[in-house]
């Protein structure tokens, strides 16, 4: 629990983040990829990288986007140019932990995520387990991601990873 918040404040914040993540997961489950960049600030940062990279301080990402325009370009590529078999994805988010709130209001938090993938004629499988390391800010009262670092444990990716998490 965040050290500079009262228990009630931290609980309320955690609930806000859970609501945010529920909606975030909903649009990813629906593969409404064009809505995905809107969860970020205009200058937001998004990365997916393996835990081996994160632990070693290496900067590469499977996906590495700085700013909403780059995220829009990724969304467009997923939707329009990337060739892939149809699939269902389901996103689970839990263990939200508010770590700290900066003087300027930036909220630091973490949570676990799990992605379950189903190809049309194959068994459902756990696709990826990982950790979101987040920075949230409020714009007009609503939470937006200033940064989301998705750190996956599942280092050996089954085939490929089409959608962001």
């Amino acid at each position: 629990m965040a050290t500079n918040l009262s228990p009630d404040e931290a609980r309320a914040l955690r609930f806000d983040i859970e609501e945010f993540n529920t909606e975030y997961a909903r649009i990813l489950d629906a593969q409404d990829i064009n809505a995905w960049p809107d969860f970020f600030t205009g200058d937001g940062f998004y990365r997916i990288t393996g835990r081996e990279n994160y632990d070693a301080g290496l900067t590469i990402g499977l996906v590495w986007c700085e700013g909403r325009p780059m995220m829009q370009d990724r969304a467009a590529a997923v939707k329009t140019t990337m060739v892939h078999a149809p699939r269902y994805l389901r996103h689970y988010n839990s263990n939200v932990r508010v770590i700290d709130v900066d003087a300027d209001g930036t909220i630091h938090s973490e949570s676990n995520y799990l992605v379950v993938e189903t190809l049309m004629e194959e068994e459902t499988r756990i696709f990826q387990a990982g950790l979101y390391i987040d920075e949230f800010v409020r714009e007009d009262g609503a939470l937006l991601l200033k940064a989301r670092d998705c750190i996956y444990d599942s280092l050996l990716i089954p085939n490929d990873m089409v959608y962001p998490v």
């Binding site: 997916i48 900067t59 590469i60 990402g61 499977l62 996906v63 590495w64 986007c65 700085e66 780059m70 990724r74 590529a77 140019t81 990337m82 060739v83 892939h84 078999a85 990716i157 085939n159 490929d160 990873m161 089409v162």
Partner: peptide
């Protein structure tokens, strides 16, 4: 780092080949 989005298991080109 930005252009790395082209390649790899999530790359704009990488995904096509893996599939």
């Amino acid at each position: 780092l930005k252009q790395a989005n082209l390649m790899g298991p999530s790359g704009y080109l990488g995904v096509d080949d893996n599939e």
